[in-house]
Design a protein around this nucleic acid. Structure first.
Lengths: 227, 227
DNA sequence: TAACATATGTAAGCGACATTCACATTGTCA
DNA sequence: TGACAATGTGAATGTCGCTTACATATGTTA
């Protein structure tokens, strides 16, 4: 199923800790003015979120990691929420990009396309559980944010399109959105239950690819009027 | 669909703020020794979690709300995590109880039973989003906790039983667990997307009961071998 | 009833954090 | 060069989680 192509980090936006340290050291030579603090901070925050979870990271530690004082981040972000939002936007862009790649790996209108999208989503959750929790937990405090809504629409739009193509109906047919939403719930729920350990905890031994295939077949197979 | 019977708070375990204030005042007459601090703290914590989210509540504020010093809670709980765990256990018990009630409202082996269970889950998420987030986010730091695992198994066991009855297969047939798990993912995912506002944000206009009915029909209908 | 152990409360303090403010340094452009 | 915006620092404020030393209430037992 071309899993390799679907893994995240592929765009090099999630870099390793080693790389960060190197970049930080080099930048430090510029002495007083860091030169690239904003992006270094975002990098550090991402690492910290994966290490200790989105609720347990501190701006102070990110600043320390980037080699600046704890007040410096406030020259680039208004507050903690704004940092988190920036990180989330990056992550959502990565996700959308990966889904586009997954899409292009299979023929238009195929069921494989839909399964690949789902696998892509789950892969992201598994690879970056902290980011996943953040992305789908941040809405609590950013309910009406337009940037976030736009990214969400982009991503969901991909799924709607694939479903419509598969069903052979127009992309703006409401039924496409409905079916796509149900698929979303399955994949979203499975992602959560997986990273929360609930699935393993309850001894679920349903191979993921089998589950995705079975679900998409059952939910999308058959006539549209049946829904 | 007897929604009233399915709403939480039914057991009076989730009380209103007004009630808490009254109880606190009465208890205060006992002066130095509170007398019922442990449960009052849990109550206060639940309220705060609903008000400001599980990540933004503080023990200090809960203590203030209960009318004691900020050190008092540590006579009853080792740390913040332990308080949160206690609150989660209570909530899970409430949930299990409500699901049992929902089950008993419909005949054994009926599809209505399964839909009622799903509705029950979603109702809980909608009524207590903060608690829902906590219950399904706490695993991050309590991955191996036996108390939590036990509650989870109880709840999931109810679903497995209902699904097995509906399919007319034995409850320990692995297929029952698999189908139940898929239903869980749908309901879990929908709950998250609903309280996160993602569903509304993307303009989903799929009546919930319709969706549940359609999903359970498609996922559980047909022969078992087809899965 | 006196005395003692135990349970449960308080006040003060520690280190960490988010955020702000006055001030220092640097880059840029007239 | 000199002025100004951008970006850094250190110190301060208020909150928090949690600990420690001490105070008070409760129950048991002599």
């Amino acid at each position: 199923m071309m899993l390799a192509k679907l893994t995240f980090c592929g765009m090099g936006r999630f870099v390793t800790e080693g790389e960060l340290e190197t970049q930080t050291k080099n930048a430090k030579r510029a002495a007083y003015h860091h030169g690239d603090l904003r992006s270094q901070l975002l990098l550090a925050v991402r690492e910290l979120i994966e290490e200790k979870g989105a609720e347990n990271f501190s701006i102070a530690e990110a600043a320390r990691k980037a080699g600046v004082s704890s007040a410096a981040p406030y020259r680039h972000f208004a507050d903690k929420d704004e940092i988190l939002k920036a990180v989330v936007l990056d992550a959502m862009d990565d996700m959308t990009h990966s889904m586009r790649d997954a899409l292009n790996a299979y023929p238009e209108g195929s069921a494989d396309r839909i399964n690949a999208l789902g696998q892509c989503y789950i892969d992201f959750a598994r690879a970056h559980p902290g980011m996943f929790r953040l992305v789908f937990g941040i809405t609590e405090s950013h309910e009406g944010d337009e940037d976030l809504a736009l990214r969400g629409a982009q991503t969901f739009g991909i799924v709607i399109g694939a479903v419509a193509d598969y069903l052979g109906i127009a992309r703006d047919n409401p039924e496409a959105k409905r079916r796509a939403y149900i698929l979303w719930t399955v994949v979203h729920g499975h992602s959560w239950l997986t990273i929360d350990g609930k699935a393993r905890q309850q001894g679920i031994d349903y191979p993921e690819t089998d589950m995705l295939a079975a679900v998409s077949l059952r939910l999308l197979g058959g006539t549209v009027d049946g829904g």
